[in-house]
Design a protein around this nucleic acid. Structure first.
Lengths: 195, 195
DNA sequence: ATAATGAGTTGACCTAAGTCAAACCTACTT
DNA sequence: AAGTAGGTTTGACTTAGGTCAACTCATTAT
């Protein structure tokens, strides 16, 4: 299956509107395949996030670095997810985030201006965007609640239930950081939960 | 200024597309004014959030109650904000949240089905929704980061900078809960910051 | 005017999670 | 085969913030 077929399937699946052949050609003309090797950056702090990427293969993390050099993972991303710092991407301001490939990464990328065109001309694309935006709102509301009112252990259990595949794909220290924990704390939580 | 004029101004302001007279009539036909007295609930846990409300006057909080009866404020809302549990509103599932008026509250409310109609027929409305969705994405990304990587004090300073009016409109214990703090902790932070 | 209710403050104490450091494991490199 | 680098575990100690309880002010209700 080609990269574009992955994208087309994804759009069809969640938008439930049909992509015409013309639609597909438009997408193929303006999404550019891009490969990154493990450890390479899709976005670096201070740069403007000019591209949004659709992950065809591989994984990535979005993180910040604070004054003390402490890294903080905000997002872990896998196949069929979109990769961008949306603040920077929408507003074209310099980003505070880094996005780094955790495995060799294949994305299809496009610019803000192009996305606007897709939204205007491809009904399935704009339906997709509405659904994503809904899902995102819902997911974020949950995650906010978890951040503020769950204990470390509850947040980990939540992850096991909602994103079990994360455990196979991401190293434990990334997951710890994603949950707002030190690696030591997550290690101890796992130890205790085997009792 | 009537309730509807507040809504129209708001839509015009952020969508920068013009509302026609027909648009306005459509909105007036399907947004219903609703008044709540302080302490009344706009939404109760377990109910489906059938309505989304546009706040014309007053304030509200969105919160959960955990097993120990501990209340946790997720959102504080004021004039010109939208009031709903979006998960429940979009999916029509029972809500895990409560939304309560903190002051006497006037909203214009409508249903999910009606909102869909507005989006379809009123360009200014759908432009507005896109902007809100963008802003929301950006704001949430920031708040997530704050939740996971800022200290209590930093989160409070952040609030002072970004939402100074909150301090005038909401009691301190609500703000504490919104920041994920006990009221005692916020009280101590404020004491120290006066040095 | 007085009681009663609810917010805010302060102090003493507790606990969940972070920090630091050492040891331990894989899995690549060369 | 040995060395190196990343990740994980374990232990000892520290700390930010929570909890509980008493006290002080306002504000509302009687």
């Amino acid at each position: 299956m080609s990269n574009f077929e992955v994208l087309f399937d994804y759009i069809q699946e969640i938008s439930d509107k049909l992509l015409s052949e013309d639609d597909k050609h438009l997408l193929m003309a303006h999404f550019k395949p891009k490969k990154l090797r493990k450890r390479q950056y899709f976005l670096q702090e201070g740069d403007v996030c000019k591209y949004i990427g659709f992950i065809v293969k591989g994984s990535a993390r979005t993180f910040t670095v604070d004054e003390k050099g402490h890294e903080n993972v905000l997002k872990l991303s896998l196949e069929n997810w979109w990769l961008a710092d949306f603040e920077s991407f929408y507003l074209l301001t310099p980003s505070r985030f880094n996005i780094e490939a955790l495995e060799d990464l294949e994305v299809l990328q496009s610019t803000n201006a192009q996305i606007e065109e897709f939204l205007k001309h491809i009904p399935a694309f704009s339906a997709m965007q509405n659904i994503i935006s809904q899902n995102y709102t819902i997911a974020t509301q949950k995650r906010m609640q978890a951040a503020y009112s769950y204990t470390a252990e509850e947040r980990y259990e939540d992850l096991i239930i909602n994103y079990p595949h994360f455990l196979k794909r991401f190293p434990q220290n990334m997951i710890a950081s994603y949950l707002g924990l030190s690696p030591e704390t997550l290690s101890r939580i796992r130890k205790n939960s085997f009792k």
